[in-house]
Amino acid sequence: MVSLQSYIVLSMIVFTIGIFGFLTRRNIIIMLLSVELMLNGVNISLVAFSHYMQDMRGQIMVFFIIAVAAAEAAIGLALIIALFRNKPTVNIDEINIMKG
């Protein structure tokens, strides 16, 4: 029997890797992928809690998180296309038009 703690540690590690990727990469597509990574880390812990507490609510929450993540991906990619049309780069350090 795998313990609940192992799942939580795994989900934490995935979440931390997502945070590290979001803070250090300047490619906007990989930053969005890091956000997805963080959401998936949280999903793992929610499903694990749901299984070990024999309660369905955690899985319902995962369901909603997946829906919101899909919405976030659609909006984020539309923003990337709109940005790319104005300035052909995905490096967010070069997108500083609104800097005073």
């Binding site: 490619n27 597509i29 990989i30 990574l37």
Partner: peptide, 21 residues
């Protein structure tokens, strides 16, 4: 999962990142 997450955030080419994802 840990190895693939690290691969996702370290690839230079975004297509490779998406495929590891």
């Amino acid at each position: 999962i840990v190895l693939l997450s690290i691969l996702v955030i370290t690839r230079r080419n975004a297509v490779h990142s998406v495929l590891w994802m």
